[in-house]
Write a protein that binds this DNA or RNA. Structure first.
Lengths: 338, 338
DNA sequence: AGTCTGGATGAAAGCGCTTTCACCAGAAGG
DNA sequence: CCTTCTGGTGAAAGCGCTTTCATCCAGACT
């Protein structure tokens, strides 16, 4: 408890004005005459005044805090989006309160509950799916919500066309002559982003008149280790794939590691493509062909949209960011049929 | 502004008690008789009461919020520590408010200022070094601070013996017969963790009667790309090293990628050791010899220590966590002198 | 001159909670 | 039987700020 802080009333006294005027100097400076404003500012600076956020929140009903609920921070795509969100929000005077739930829908609901209790002014979420309890909390709070990566129709959201991403990666492999294409995704049951990508892969195959044999699709943890395991599983098949699509780059990189550890050459023996375009994907060896997802921009745009909504500014409330294929060295022509 | 929320006074009315009693039911339940407590709880549950955090903070002077200032979230070691911190704090009813500054000391001070204004009850910081302004903010706030990774003597802290980590990695390479050992660290100027590790490397070399030629030490970004560039630089020397220590695993992995891209075999042609022990380090190929740093535990312990301090519980206020060498396949005997 | 506007400021009532202090049994002690 | 506790509860005063409403004073307009 720091009760030795300068209070607004002390600034008022020092500046010879009422507390109301000091308050206005902070939040609505254009209401004051330039001289008064300058006088108040001088007094505030001189005393080192810092408004108390809790008091402001209580009195105004706005906490100037936005909550973000992410699956995990332990993955560059989310931490990057978060970083961008924070930067954007900070510019508008908002603070970000972060919670993560490690891909558990129940924990996500709990995060939402906590953030609501904290009095956030809005919530930024990942994905569209949540348990009924969470949905109810959100709707009864009446707070603005911006969803990212995926969203139900009509809800304010910053999206990525996950299905298109899967489609692009797979079409690229098909174009190189691959016919036996494996896919390793994260758990699709709790992850609509991964599901969308998986759908894209299937669609590309269908376009080419192919179907995806169940054996060639597997789900793994969205980590490098998951990628290795998934790859091992696919390579151990009687008829292993000549190309693999990873649901995220981390999985794809894990694939490459596993394949290389088995003495396979990439892309000569196996082509690997990812989705995300992590920083590191350009630097692994061989560099990873992937579908670029503008992760940081998702964060920026979600933050921008949230602020616009809070300010009642008109504008589109759904935004779909483009994804595009980045061809690097991890994919190549399908080996001639043995 | 959600003014349709249930207020404490409504719960009080429903339960037939005073607001004070409801307040006590929430924060000091043992003061109430079991019957009253049960009655209040029932009323609160029934109405779906959620206390308003801002009002609690204002009235009590405690926000139940801890601020964490990290260099970046975009690095597994920090996001992991953060995740652990959050989990630990949540268990004690605290919330984590995160800020990151991207390795800028000025931005760090700004983060601290913002968090203080938000009324955090304590701060968890990384490293011991900050600009005077930040130090002043901290001391004049009078809030408890826990430092992590590095700290000046006496300050509450959860430490890692960075120098020892550098020492262990280097001794291991010396033990394998390497005499020409390169080191790639992050920028040591603004990063006392990296500086400690670097010191450890030098000390190990001195123990062995060797000195580190300036050409064999370089600083790079703490990323995979930085590792590649540093490695390229060292390998391009007239007399390249036979082994390289990376200041963090990401750099070490970048080294391996670069070396392999140049057709070198690891560890036959070049040994590489890192420090951190990222999850992925066990899964790259070859698996990385590294010094394990208990990253998640740093977060847990820092959180635990913070809560203990806030509760005035006695106990040690500095804790040094052990680091230990993990030998994997990226290091091997020095090649015979050519 | 007299009225009207509107810009600049102040007074004061909260925001929803915590916490001190007072109070009131009834138990314990003299 | 009266005092002294003590555990349980309530009354009420804030916590530091925002915001409505009222006030005041120029200047603009009739």
């Amino acid at each position: 408890m720091v009760r030795n802080r300068i209070r607004l009333s002390e600034v008022a006294r020092a500046a010879g004005v009422s507390p109301a005027t000091v308050s206005r100097a902070i939040s609505q400076p254009d209401l004051l005459s330039p001289e008064t404003l300058a006088r108040v500012r001088r007094a505030a600076d001189h005393l080192g005044y810092r408004p108390d956020a809790a008091a402001r929140a209580l009195a105004s009903g706005r906490s100037m805090t936005i909550g973000a609920v992410m699956p995990t921070l332990d993955n560059a795509i989310f931490s990057k989006a978060l970083q961008a969100m924070q930067a954007q929000l900070a510019g508008d005077g908002y603070q970000l309160l972060v919670a993560s739930h490690d891909y558990s829908k129940a924990a996500e609901a709990e995060c939402i509950r906590t953030l609501l209790a904290r009095g956030v002014d809005g919530l930024i979420l990942v994905g569209a799916e949540r348990i009924a309890e969470a949905a109810q909390l959100l709707s009864q709070s009446g707070l603005p919500v911006v969803m990212t990566w995926c969203a139900p129709d009509g809800a304010p959201s910053v999206l990525v066309d996950n299905e298109h991403a899967g489609l692009l990666a797979t079409r690229h492999l098909l174009g190189l002559g691959h016919r036996r294409i494996g896919v390793i995704t994260g758990a699709t049951r709790f992850n609509d982003r991964q599901r969308g990508r998986y759908r894209g892969v299937r669609r590309a195959l269908e376009e080419a008149g192919l179907t995806l044999p169940p054996a060639l699709a597997c789900e793994q943890a969205t980590t490098l280790a998951g990628g290795r395991m998934g790859c091992a599983q696919l390579l151990d098949l009687a008829e292993p794939p000549t190309a693999i699509v990873g649901g995220i780059d981390l999985i794809a990189i894990g694939c490459m590691v596993e394949a290389q550890a088995r003495g396979l050459a990439i892309p000569a023996d196996l082509s690997v493509a990812g989705i995300d375009d992590l920083d590191m994907s350009a630097h692994v060896s061989p560099s990873l062909t992937t579908v670029h997802v503008p992760t940081a921009r998702i964060g920026t745009e979600a933050a921008r949209m949230m602020v616009a909504i809070l300010r009642d500014e008109p504008g589109p409330t759904t935004l779909t960011l483009p994804v595009d294929l980045i061809v690097r060295r991890s994919t190549g022509p399908a080996p001639a049929r043995g």
